[in-house]
Design a protein around this nucleic acid. Sequence first.
DNA 1: AACGCGCCAGTAAACATTTACCCAAACAGC
DNA 2: GCTGTTTGGGTAAATGTTTACTGGCGCGTT
Lengths: 372, 372
Amino acid sequence: MANRKTKTSRRAAQKPARMDIHAVAKLANVSIATVSRTINRVPTVNPKMAKRVWEAIRELDYFPNTQARALVSGRSRLLGLIVSEITNPFFPELMQGFEDVAVENGYEVLIGSTNYDPDRMSTCIRRMLERKVDGVAVMTFGIEEPLLAQLAERKIPLVFVDVGPERPGISVLKVDYHSGIRQGVQHLAALGHRSIGFITGPLRLHSAHSRLAAFEKSMQECGLQVAGEWIVQGDHTMEGGMAATDLLLSRKALPTAVMCSNDMSAIGVLHKLHRSQVRVPDDLSLIGFDDIHLNEVMIPPLTSVQMSRTDLARAAVSALRAHIEGTSPQREYGISTQLVVRESTGFPRGTMQHLRDKARSQRGAGVSGLKK
Amino acid sequence: MANRKTKTSRRAAQKPARMDIHAVAKLANVSIATVSRTINRVPTVNPKMAKRVWEAIRELDYFPNTQARALVSGRSRLLGLIVSEITNPFFPELMQGFEDVAVENGYEVLIGSTNYDPDRMSTCIRRMLERKVDGVAVMTFGIEEPLLAQLAERKIPLVFVDVGPERPGISVLKVDYHSGIRQGVQHLAALGHRSIGFITGPLRLHSAHSRLAAFEKSMQECGLQVAGEWIVQGDHTMEGGMAATDLLLSRKALPTAVMCSNDMSAIGVLHKLHRSQVRVPDDLSLIGFDDIHLNEVMIPPLTSVQMSRTDLARAAVSALRAHIEGTSPQREYGISTQLVVRESTGFPRGTMQHLRDKARSQRGAGVSGLKK
DNA sequence: AACGCGCCAGTAAACATTTACCCAAACAGC
DNA sequence: GCTGTTTGGGTAAATGTTTACTGGCGCGTT
């Protein structure tokens, strides 16, 4: 009662020992039930009372105890996010987006990274279960079996990328690899490339398979031959890209362009090519996949197929929310991809354009990609 | 009673509707108190009973409800980790380390990223408070005032980097910038560089200040002049590095070497220099700071001062644990730094060594750094 | 005027633990 | 053999919410 600053006293002068719903109720002169209902915006509360309650809440700087809430309501307002690698900048960017969207919707995020290690994956799942997450996004780009057993069994909503079991409570983000990769192949074809190689990801990953398949299909569509010796397996890391480049360099002939299953591979390739005096794009054009920020500062800046992290994050959170809150969850969410042309692609060596281009001392940014 | 596989039946055949401590107690034929004590490893429980309890736990695949636990014990076993940027690969690497160590010690991590935005910072803190984190590591490399008000007031243990208020419950990780940066300057000096520039971070950051100071001091120690026109302010981003490079290139003369306040800046510099036909290290030597993984694949691979993410993560978790569990928390934890020599540093242009070096067609990895 | 119904606030149970306190049994000392 | 002490398990309270149920009050209808 003895408030110093009567109006918006930043901290109530008389501090109750514990700051719970009872304190608010007492100050607002209502029951705790009313306070709870007010906070949860139950429409049956009298606006007059609600106002009193909100004032008391402000006065006391009160916020509800999440633990107690979760305990009784059975909902933790926690979303799990499982990613595979953290070294690949794609994932931090994805995590950031996911966190932003989740927080926007009043959820918190529990992050787990597996490093492709089944043991880590299983402790990850355990942690999620213990914290009673309301849903989990599995962004490892490849299903892992233990998940299904432990999470789906407990009816926890799940989101996968690319592929997942057909089951209630499970959604899948379907990435349209083909569209972006086709743009890439068409871009190369338009520049005059005929022999194009591909560095795959680890083929146990569904996404790696899909990207390779999309490449092969796109080549066919452009009337180009896919040469087996120029399809090399990588593992979506820089090291994998370097190793794949070694292999490629050991072939009797080089392709004039190479597409990669992801940007980290492409960065490894770029590095190794530079070491081997192969110039990009003069001797060899290079296209990555993911379009991580880093691409812009590579030397040269890397042409890449963009898969939007924000789209993925938004779709994942939407899907989970729909399942959790019971509002018409979709089985599939489409994610589009799109070519972003930078400077790692150019005319193939020896073509007229190439020579003409060479003649101009300074390369402009004149090589524009064709949309669709 | 009608178990199929009598021994290690993976899932109990008869599933109790709810799987709580009572179910375990009933199966083990003890009271819930005993179960609780067993789980929490209270030493007074009879080993015989403990064994029965553990078996029941295994049988039922039981794990305690974290919410209830947290509610009654007042401890959430949740650690907050606040970082500034997620685009800078340094932070994901740090987050990864922090998470690993935290999980190792039975804690979960709540991540918040601020993007240097005070609003985001304050919602971040709010989230941490609501989830009742047991401690928070503030890895933004610069104190933010709202933190102190809200978190310290509630006696939540905190860890800062570089600098923080002298208060119980607060520890500071003191990074020894000087040692690593001195190694860098000495390395350059030994190669024959006399004119060395520096690209700072955003100077509102304490860490940026410290790094600049360490550079200036090291220059003095090596008997070298610090030229004001070669000290340019960046902001720890690639873009900042590029802008700083532009400024540097507009000076009437260039230094023969440049050190950067962090690697992202250095990558921006590298990019811009390449665009401007300045070769690294032939025309200009470059040293970064942080030693992110990416350095290895830059063209050329970047010499950098390493600040160990693992060390930071370990120290942060140790400090927080010490505060939380009351075991002799230290006020300060030292973090060392160390030069890692790669290929972005070489002899300055025009020196004898430079010419001699040029003569050898292939550069070896022969330029070795001097330790200490 | 009386009855009924709807609206809305309050009471209390439930959520799954931890832990202070109590009490039974066992053992040792006299 | 009886009593005192110690050992260790059980009972119940407490944690801070949500929510089903209850009940009072006011208004509308017959």
